[in-house]
Each structure stands twice: as C-alpha cells, then as structure tokens.
Design a protein around this nucleic acid. Sequence first.
DNA 1: TAACTACCTGGAGCGCACTCCAGGTCAAGG
DNA 2: CCTTGACCTGGAGTGCGCTCCAGGTAGTTA
Lengths: 140, 140
Amino acid sequence: METTNAGELTPAAMAERTGVSIDTLRYYEREGLIQEVSRASGGHRRYSEDDVLWIEVLRCLRETGMTIDQLRRYAQLGAQGNHTEPERVRMLTEHRSLVVQQILDREVAVRLIDHKLSFYADATDTVGPLDAGQTERVTS
Amino acid sequence: METTNAGELTPAAMAERTGVSIDTLRYYEREGLIQEVSRASGGHRRYSEDDVLWIEVLRCLRETGMTIDQLRRYAQLGAQGNHTEPERVRMLTEHRSLVVQQILDREVAVRLIDHKLSFYADATDTVGPLDAGQTERVTS
DNA sequence: TAACTACCTGGAGCGCACTCCAGGTCAAGG
DNA sequence: CCTTGACCTGGAGTGCGCTCCAGGTAGTTA
C-alpha cells in the first residue's frame, strides 16, 4: 500500500469517516466547496483532519437545506480572507433562521401525526364508514 | 363566471388557499395522492373543504420528507378502508420518528451555527491568518 | 514480470418532484 | 356571434444533487 502520513486520510478512509461517498467528495471539490486537497505521489488525494471538520460543516449545512450554490459561495468567501466575514455572518444568520423555522414546522408536523395516531388509537375497530377515507377530521 | 356552490373551490382558489400550485395539485391527483375530485360542468375541478384538509396533511408530510411514493401508498391505504389502519399507523409512526430525528439534527445544526457565529463575534477584526480559511476550529 | 487494487479524469446518466407547454373545450360577457 | 379567460389533457422539459462509467495510471503483491 502507498505510504500514508499520520493524520492523512485516503479517499476511502475519508468516506468512511464522514459518511460522504468518494464520488460526492470529488463532486464537492469540483463544485468549489472544498479547496486544495493535498495529493500523494501518483495524484491520489490525501485529506487532513481539517478537511474532515470542514466536510462535517458542509454536511451539516447541506442537510439542513443550504444549496450547493450557497455552500460554494460560503466556501469561497472563507478562502478570500477576513474581509468577507460580515458576509459569512450574514449567510449563517440567514440560514440559522431558516433552520429554526424548519424545527418549528417539524414540531407542528409531529403534533399533526400524533393527532392522527390518537384518532386511530381511539377508533379501535368500531369505526364507521366516515373514517375510511383520506380525510378523517384533522382540526381538533 | 361558471356557478360555484358553497364550500367548493376552483383550482385557482384551491391553490390560493393551500399554497400548492394548480400544476402540483393536478400532479398529485395523477400520482394517486388525491382521489376523486369532483367536477363542475365542463369538467372543471371543484375542491371541497375536506380536500383542503387532505392537501394540508399531504403538504405537512411531504415537507418533512415523505416521498411521493409513500404518500401514494398512504392515500391508497386510506381509500381501501378500515382494515388498512394498522399499516397506516405503522407508516405514521415510522415517519414520526424520522421527523423527530430531523428536529434533533437541526438543533445540532443551530448549535454549530451559533458556535461559528460566536467565533466571528469574538474575532472582531484582530484575527490572524489562521482564521481565514474554511476550517477555523469547530470542536469546542 | 504480471496481476491486482486504489485511485485518477472528464463526462454522461439518473431519480425525484415538480413545472411548463401545445392544443383544445366551454360557459359567460359584450 | 365572437371574444375572453379559466380550465382541461397528455406529455415533454427542468433543476438539483448526486452517482456511475470508461479508460487510464501508479504503487504493491505474488
């Protein structure tokens, strides 16, 4: 096996660590979400521990609905230096309120599901035809 | 204008009420998510108040990640009568735990964003070059 | 030396959830 | 009667985020 320095991860190891597939890692790099991944002899990628942290940030933002476009912008701002901090803060603040809203929406969803479940629990098997359709009453 | 009975909604009115576009309403119907929408003369759809409630349930489940395939299955179970209740309960219960997990994930995301924001707040404008990149330290 | 394995690149393909379009119908208003 | 506008249908198109593939290279193992 090709020698691997301490703290350096092969693509396979990186995929294992982060749960992001090798293809997706390359895709992120192509799209400008990850900069300058170092290379071993033969051109093989070697990811650092910092790369791991960065991927975890990307995934966290991505999984909460930030688009690839926005992630690219955020990454490029980071690469451009300190003067871009206000814009990065703006992006994070905006995304934060989006995520907070997602939480609120999902809390509503859980309550709706619970309501429907309690409806089914009450019904046991003595329900009439009114309950058979798509629209047993939802509004409490 | 074509006569509209009380409590009946034209496609345009339905879109307005539910925030779901006319095209998407038709798409849902084609896909079997909505059954037997009534028609006015000339074949124009007329949605009922029950349809409104059902669409709101669909959107609630859809927006929390239930796929069209699963929604179709859920809708068809509803149309098949009471004996499908156990399966519907199973689907809702499973989806519920997915949504709960989404909430937990998003709470983690908010904390991560707050951490990064507090990092920026501390930095004011006296930061060194170490902070410029993609990977200012994230782990507390 | 030959085979094997992990990785490389550029580019095509895919699944999902819509979204749009062409061409047509039909009731109401002028 | 003619125009207008909301709606109809079947089917094609779109954008996003991956995911896969062909053909090639470079170290390691037998």
